[in-house]
Design a protein around this nucleic acid. Structure first.
Lengths: 119, 119
DNA sequence: CGCGTTATGTTATGGTGTAACGCGAGCGCT
DNA sequence: AGCGCTCGCGTTACACCATAACATAACGCG
């Protein structure tokens, strides 16, 4: 379901959507599925929105950097291993052992920026 | 209150703490205070924990990169304007206009890593 | 005093996430 | 077939996070 979405969906939005085809489904099932999929790297959570997106194929084994349009909800994945590396290194300077990165960028996507930006 | 904390506090933890000296305080008050403080850059939210920390003085006008120890809860701020810049640029490649960065690093701090890491 | 402004309190509600328990389907084994 | 096992799912119930909407109190000022 997430794959056919332009943006992110909250767990409960997902729940509602699923109920249309399977009225008996419930919250724990959604969370279990999300946990499983996100362990497999097929789904990523947007921490700053409490929402979830499907990862593009090919991104399975690394966290992506997510650009989030606050206007239209569009979410874009970017890969930048080098930057993540630098972040780990930065943290490492004080002895931190990195296990997971959360990198999210809020702003406006190209089309929303065109539409409203030059106002 | 946040300043005298080693780690982050959730809004409700804060609420409980505040109630010890001011039993009448309530959730909206906490959130209003947090919103005000965070607009002034004195408090930052940890999106991935739904919690809040006091920023160090001097960090008021930029978002920090936060290193979060998943063992002991310690949170460390780092400034790295250069990296944030690079992130904006990365997003900018597809036309994104950045307004806000969320950069959080989960892992283990030096002492927890010493204690359990070499296990 | 009366007014607006601002901070705070109250009530209620909605969204997010999970623990605990039990059922039932599928599977392998004898 | 009959048995027991595991595993996924649904159910219930609850905890936590956050805010809307409305009411109240405190203050400065003309």
């Amino acid at each position: 379901m997430l794959r056919q979405q332009r943006g992110a969906l909250s767990a409960y939005a997902l729940l509602d959507a699923m109920r249309e085809t399977n009225p008996t489904i419930s919250a724990p099932t959604i969370y279990r599925a999300l946990a499983a999929l996100s362990e497999r790297g097929e789904v990523q959570r947007l921490e700053s929105l409490n929402a979830y997106i499907a990862c593009k194929h090919g991104c399975e084994d690394q966290t992506s950097i997510l650009s989030i349009c606050d206007d239209c909800g569009l979410v874009e994945e970017s890969a930048a291993p080098h930057l993540l590396e630098q972040l780990s290194k930065l943290a490492g300077r004080s002895g931190f052992a990195t296990t997971r990165h959360v990198v999210e960028i809020h702003g406006r996507c190209a089309s929303c920026d065109d539409a409203e930006g030059p106002a």
